[in-house]
Nucleic acid binder design. Structure first.
Length: 123
DNA sequence: CTGATGACGAGCG
DNA sequence: CCGCTCGCCATCA
């Protein structure tokens, strides 16, 4: 296993609990990179132990892939975990969004929690 | 080595 | 709400 931004992203995604979701932007802030990179990282997922389906966009929707439509598999897996979708195909983030790792999680991974002060914008 | 490519999101009109 | 622009990483041919 290497080190590198993708590795950090994957480690964070693996921490998202069953039945909950995280947004690309949320993972990005935690990883200290841009939301775009998180999208790239998810597109490159190879290992089966990474719950990529629990990552949705900021509106709570399964994001559209290059084919012009979202991967039905993602929504199917989430519904299997008990995640509900509204008529617009969106998850209620107020209910299902992951709160993020607690302080000790970072220590266990030998990492440091991101600084709160600089609220990273996009990128 | 070079270049194409891919699952986002904030800000602005 | 809609439709731009821009940021700039890892992987594969």
């Amino acid at each position: 296993m290497g080190d590198g931004i993708y590795q950090v992203i994957y480690t964070l995604v693996q921490a998202v609990p069953f039945g909950q979701v995280a947004t690309y932007g949320q993972i990005a802030r935690l990883a200290g990179c841009g939301a775009r990179q998180v999208g790239y990282a998810m597109a490159a997922v190879k290992a089966p132990d990474i719950p990529w389906h629990r990552v949705v966009n900021s509106r709570g929707a399964v994001s559209t892939r290059s084919v012009g439509a979202p991967d039905p598999e993602q929504r199917r897996r989430l519904e299997e975990e008990g995640v509900l979708f509204d008529p617009f195909g969106r998850v209620n983030l107020a209910v299902f969004q992951w709160s993020g790792p607690d302080g000790s999680w970072w220590i266990e991974k030998g990492m440091e929690p991101p600084l709160l002060m600089p609220t990273p914008s996009n990128n």
